[in-house]
Computed example of a mutant assay.
Amino acid sequence: METLSPLLPREKLLRDGAMLLTDEELLALFLRTGTRSKNVFALARDLLQHFGSLHGLLSAEMKDFRRVEGIGLATFAQLKGIAELAQRYYCSGIRGINPLKDPQMTREFVRSQLAEEEREIFMVIFLDNQNRVLSHSRLFSGTLSHVEVHPREIAREAIKVNAAGVILAHNHPSGRAEPSKADRDVTARIIKCCQFMDIRVLDHLVIGRGEYVSFAERGWI
């Protein structure tokens, strides 16, 4: 088995920052070794192609790995641990922040939750009366191109956690973040429903692949 000297991706990370590493380089840095027939970069490339993306790799089940050469149970467990660590990192980072003062953190959090999903997911971030995050919840899930949203359920959940405001977010698995007429219509219905409960809707973020649209930035809220 060939062992990777971690200097190349590690040096790049230290010199340029982790954001400039490719998915293949990040995965190779973690794997460290290849197999008898593949160096670690070839293994990383093949894994990403097999599972479609980092999200596909990190969210795959154990049975999916049994058909992949070079991945044992120990590596599978480590990959699942990395996925959970990333989720907890973003969840712990978002709680208590003011999205109006740190919109980039909010966008990154929403993107981490929704960008790679293969079906539409509608998430709500609940805020207190000082616009600090109380909690978040994936309230509705749908198909590749549609999710059914019930405004009264959003208002009901907001009341449960004593929220004074909400930020709405959902993804477009197609990759295009541009909101549809249905997106704008359901947002208007949610705003109207929440107004009866004195709950403010601060924004609606639509997440695509590498892009987003903010209703607030567009002046629609």
Score class of each variant (00 low, 15 high):
P151G: 02
E24R: 15
N162A: 12
R111C: 08
K63E: 15
V149F: 06
K192V: 08
F41G: 03
T3S: 08
Q78R: 15
R15D: 02
G175E: 01
H55S: 13
P179C: 08
G208K: 10
L139D: 10
M1I: 13
S59A: 10
K38Q: 14
A169V: 03
R138K: 13
L13E: 03
R66M: 14
E120S: 06
A60Y: 05
L4S: 11
S141N: 02
D183W: 07
L31H: 04
E116M: 04
L114Q: 03
G142T: 02
G165D: 07
M62P: 05
E2R: 15
G219M: 03
F215A: 14
V40A: 06
A155D: 00
T35N: 12
P103A: 09
G142A: 01
E2P: 14
S5E: 07
S214V: 05
Q87S: 13
L54N: 08
E61P: 00
P151N: 01
F30K: 02
E217W: 00
L4V: 03
R32A: 12
S214K: 10
A188P: 01
E116S: 14
Y90A: 09
T75L: 14
V166T: 07
T35L: 09
R66T: 10
A164L: 00
E2N: 11
I207G: 03
E11C: 02
L205Y: 12
F140Q: 10
S145D: 15
L54C: 12
V147P: 09
R156M: 05
G56H: 04
T187M: 12
N171G: 04
L27K: 09
E24Y: 00
Q195E: 14
G93S: 09
V186L: 04
G34T: 10
L205G: 06
L114I: 09
L58F: 15
V161K: 09
S174V: 12
T143F: 12
L79A: 05
A28G: 11
Y212K: 01
G142S: 02
D102M: 12
H55T: 06
C193M: 13
R132H: 13
V186E: 04
R119V: 15
E211P: 01
I207W: 03
N39A: 11
G72A: 07
R156N: 00
T75F: 05
D23Q: 11
I159R: 14
E69W: 04
V161L: 10
E148Y: 13
